[in-house]
Every structure is written in C-alpha cells, then in structure tokens.
C-alpha cells in the first residue's frame, strides 16, 4: 500500500448483488461505514451477512455493484481492499498440523513483523497455548486465534464475521474488551453477530439484513428509542386495522391476526392507551406489553424477521 494513501477507514458499497446459482444472496445492498465506529450486521441465517462481509473484504466478486475502501476500488482479485483491511472469517477451518504460533505467521503473511508480534501478544493475552498444534485447540480457541490475527495488522478497517461465536461468557467479555479498545482507537469495525449482548455493548450502528436485502440501517440509539415506543397488543379477535391505525399517537402498525405491534410517535403511551381503552369498535385488549423490548422481539415486531 502506498504510504501517502490517506487511511481514514471509510468504506462505501453500493448496489451489491451476488447470486449463487439460482439463489440471490445479496439483492442490491448499499452500505457506508467509517471513519471509525462499529457497525453490527444482523439478520437470520442465510440473510447474506457473510456474503456481504466477504465482498467488502474483496474475497468474493459481486455480480453487480461497487466497493471502495479509502478510495481504493474493489477490482481484480480485491488485493487493494485486502491490503487496507483485516478479516476474521466466520467459518473456522484451520491447518491442524501447524502450531498456534506458526498459524499466526501464516495468517499474517504480508502484514509485517510488527503485526505478527502484536498477534502473538494478543493471543497470549487471551491465554492461547501458541506452542501447541492447532488440531488440539477447542472451537473457541480457534476463534480467538483468528481474531488475534484479524486485530493485529495496522489497518483502519476490520471485518469480523461472528467474532465471539462459540466463546464462553468470560472469553466473550475479553474479546469485547479488545474490540472496544479498537473502537476507541478510531478503527472502523464491521461485524456480524447473533449475540445480542455483544451488539448492545459495542455497536454504534445496526444494519438489518433479510433475504439479501437491507431492511434497516439505524444507529443503536434510534433502534433502542423505537424499542421504547413499541406497544404490543393482543385481542381476542383480529381488530380492524383502520380503526387501530386511526388511534392517536400511532406512527406504524403491523398486524398479525389478533396481535398488533404498534410503534408510537412518542415515548409517552398514555394518550394512546386511553384511546385504546375507550374505542368501542375494538374488543377489549387481552394483553398489552410496553417498554424496552429485546432485540429479537424488536426485529420480529418491526420487520417481521423471526430470528437472528
């Protein structure tokens, strides 16, 4: 990489399309990231998270669309992007015959001695037995080895596919502390995760993917605010959508049989609840849930996405 190239860690992707045979993994995804900040990619299995991360790292060619990292476009075999970013794959497959130390050297070939020393130090910090062959490592240890390598290079963008998958809570905490350190240093981090605690703790922005499409791209604060404004009401029979939507303070409504998910315009539900109680065209609600929902609940209610 040219030393004079400005490295702010700004990633821009637009119109990304990728098909595998007849299956469309990504159907026109746009994404902007950085400089700095942690973006969490969320979505159910098969939603296109890993494909998107692989394209952003230059490992997979998109069928359409473009990617640019600090002005370097994704072209050819994606070398310009890989030189400016680091990556931890989601699927764990390592060379079992290599020791942890040799494996780090393999993973960091082309990154310089400094990166290797940093990776060794991170791996030791995480308690990995680097002198042992990797075939004797547990799933979690392999994950940590990959992460140690991904956090070592001196780059401004790190792309991490499920970085804490398979880790016990204590190790997950250590890994999150490492990511927080990176975040504080101004590195742009894109990560996919199924772990809500992780997302809640470190992500500034959340991108929801479903069936290869971007459903939403919002800051963490905005998502939490929406969670606070969500009211779930269950009736004995399906209510009239028109009547429910006409109640004061209703911003958005999703009706599923006798259950309604209502996003209010403000944090204060009192006016809405009073109107709900007095509306004679609606049967009396059987249950009302209000307050901060869990992220899976929020995804289900706002976007109809069933699971992470």
């Amino acid at each position: 990489m040219n030393a004079s190239t400005p490295t702010t860690g700004t990633l821009r992707a637009s119109g990304l399309v990728r098909r595998f045979g007849t299956k469309t993994a990504l159907a026109g995804v746009d994404l902007e990231a950085g400089p700095g900040g942690v973006i969490g990619l969320l979505g159910p299995n098969g939603s296109g998270k890993s494909t998107l991360l692989r394209i952003l790292y230059g490992l997979v060619r998109p069928d359409a669309g473009s990617v640019e990292l600090d002005g370097a476009p994704l072209e050819g075999d994606g070398l310009a992007i890989r030189q400016r970013a680091s990556y931890a794959p989601g699927e764990i497959a390592l060379y079992g015959e290599l020791t942890g130390e040799k494996h780090l050297a393999f993973l960091l070939r082309g990154r310089g001695r400094e990166a290797l020393e940093k990776a060794n130090s991170t791996a030791r910090e995480l308690g990995l037995p680097l002198e042992r062959r990797v075939r004797g490592y547990s799933h979690g240890m392999k994950r940590q080895l990959l992460l140690s390598a991904a956090l070592a290079p001196s780059v401004r963008v790190r792309i991490l596919d499920e970085p804490s998958e398979g880790l016990d809570p204590a190790k997950r905490g250590e890994v999150l502390a490492l990511l927080e350190r990176e975040k504080a240093a101004g590195t742009t981090i894109l990560l996919s995760s199924h772990h809500l605690g992780e997302i809640d703790r470190i992500c500034d922005r959340l991108v929801f993917l479903h069936q290869g499409k971007k459903l939403a791209d919002e800051t963490r604060e905005r998502v939490l605010e929406r969670a606070r404004r969500l009211v779930r009401v269950s009736f004995d029979a399906a209510p009239e959508e028109r009547v429910l939507a006409g109640l004061p303070g209703v911003a958005r409504l999703r009706l599923e049989g006798a259950r309604a998910a209502i996003e209010l315009e403000s944090d204060d539900p009192r006016e809405f609840l009073a109107a709900l109680a007095s509306e004679r065209r609606l049967s009396a609600p059987r249950a009302i849930e209000y307050g901060a929902l869990s992220l899976p609940d929020l995804l289900r209610e706002l976007y109809g996405v069933e699971a992470l």
Binding site: G76, D77, L79, R82, A93
Partner: peptide, 16 residues
C-alpha cells in the same frame, strides 16, 4: 475440501 481456502485467500497477497 478442508475449508481452508478462505484463510489462504484472505491474506493481502494476490491470487496470482
């Protein structure tokens, strides 16, 4: 076959 293609390619070296 053994799934290591991704880490082999993920380094900042050209495929050529």
């Amino acid at each position: 076959q053994r799934g290591t293609l991704e880490i082999w390619l993920a380094r900042p070296l050209s495929r050529r």
